[in-house]
Design a protein around this nucleic acid. Sequence first.
DNA 1: TTGTATGCGTTATCAG
DNA 2: CTGATAACGCATACAA
Lengths: 334, 334
Amino acid sequence: MSRVPERNVNARKRVTSVDVARRCGVSQSTVSLVLSGKGAGRVSARTAEAVRTAAAELGYRPNAAARALKTGAARTIVLVVPDVTNPFFGAVLRGAQSAAREAGYAVALVDTANDRAYGTASAAALQAGPADGLLLFAIDPPRPRGDRSDPIVLIESDVGGHPGVRLDIESGTTAAIRHLQELGHRRIGHLASAIEGSTFRLRRETLEALAGDAPSAAADFVPEQARDAALALLGAHPDLTALFCDDDVLASGAYLAARRLGRRIPEDLSVVGFDDLDVARVLDPPLTTVTADAGELGRVAFELLAARLAGRRPASRVLDVHLTVRGSTAPPRA
Amino acid sequence: MSRVPERNVNARKRVTSVDVARRCGVSQSTVSLVLSGKGAGRVSARTAEAVRTAAAELGYRPNAAARALKTGAARTIVLVVPDVTNPFFGAVLRGAQSAAREAGYAVALVDTANDRAYGTASAAALQAGPADGLLLFAIDPPRPRGDRSDPIVLIESDVGGHPGVRLDIESGTTAAIRHLQELGHRRIGHLASAIEGSTFRLRRETLEALAGDAPSAAADFVPEQARDAALALLGAHPDLTALFCDDDVLASGAYLAARRLGRRIPEDLSVVGFDDLDVARVLDPPLTTVTADAGELGRVAFELLAARLAGRRPASRVLDVHLTVRGSTAPPRA
DNA sequence: TTGTATGCGTTATCAG
DNA sequence: CTGATAACGCATACAA
């Protein structure tokens, strides 16, 4: 039986710099010089031009893997997020990615589906080389191997050792709670995130410092889950006149619960959210919430990472937020 | 002046297979054999074990760039989307990424921010090697270079030449319009996407086939923009009793418009959406909409791409959708 | 101004 | 069963 040679089905003929060199009768290194822009003043204009047209005609594209191997940099960063499904991340992603694009970096994305262990594991794996650096959103960094000089930037997370960027949760939460208190609310419930993380821990700590030990219930970022949690919370504590929610999606669940209980917002129940997602302005009444700039979070995160990659040691940053008062808060009924 | 040698700041000492080999006194190729799993029956159990422990102790991780260069495959695919900010994509992304993960592929993401030209351009650039294949969401593929064997899969887009997966827009739209007509609506408006694309074109064509030339207004996927478009539409056509919206976010804008006009949903205006995002169930009343499985869309897209990568030529797929009737539709007032 | 030679870390093909 | 050895495509020090 004659062996039929296996044909690689994906064998699109790759055009390499050698092909370009051959095409216009120069050496491969000249091609490299010209196309990487480092030929200025070293290669004659004529040859440079010839190289460029040959490259264009052949449709030459430098091989990313070879370049990465040679230079040791992949010009790729990875953003690890616990849940791409949450609208907040969309904006973070876009901010990070547009900044990365300007700097010539590609962004790969890993969604851990709220699996913290997986997040940490994949972060460790990524350091192997596919990525030059890591942006971890509310994910614990892997144990630093030896020194902590790994190019990692933390977003909305606060483990020491790596630079990070986060929202000023304390002042946002403070503004929200003070607003409620000034309105006259004394019994404030906390509709909390079931996901752990320092960003949520900070909300809770701030809340407790200002309003004492608030009754709470936790849910994932799904309206129905939040509704059920709110129903349980309101059922167990009928004296609650206001709800502070860790996130706008959670707040939308509170609306669902109020609707089911026949409690009107804001007359019978005040609700405050966090993040100011699109949904906040669509709810009826519009949601009073803490406005955060998610895009900025992503952009700054990339800048921090770029600085790390350049060998600097940037300081962590905290981004301002502000309370946006809309229609979901009012004085409690007498 | 003595030259101080430049120190590469990012010089984390990389552990290579050579280090592992040296550590346990075997050759580098043996290490490669063992760690790639191809050493079964060729390397003694003793040596294999020694190699594995040495690798673990040293924290060895194969260099992705070197592997990609050698094998010609990066085990990475790229998903190009026009707008990561739209919640619908989150689910698509997650579907694609979980399927990719199981197959050992990483997913990189490119957000074109609704810039179609950029989308097409970056798709072309990506083919250079960073990615083994492309998933294009509502993005036109670059002109096929020579043959059309490039590993590209189209999502919600319908340009010939590449396999694709899309929702059954026709039957979804038909179900929505028929539902409205059975309720007695004769004047149906169309709140359309400002973004072009075959998925939206199909909605329009189906709508026109069923209900004639419907008055329409277009907006981006932002509640306030949709509200303004709906306001204009309703202002110009006061006889409209129902609105068919290309997307739930657009529908939420219709709610905003109705609220401002003092028209009650569904008594004074029926609204139908598309996609069944979280927001559909949070609106008051809950939105009647066409339910689509975004995660499935992503998953199937990856499967198609994996098949392409394996040299097969998978057939395009169309995914079922169904109408979910909730509270936003009712007979028009007499 | 241009060409030659070398190596990045891996995989794969051979001999031994 | 194991070890040399040769690419993969590019960037760059050095030679001409």
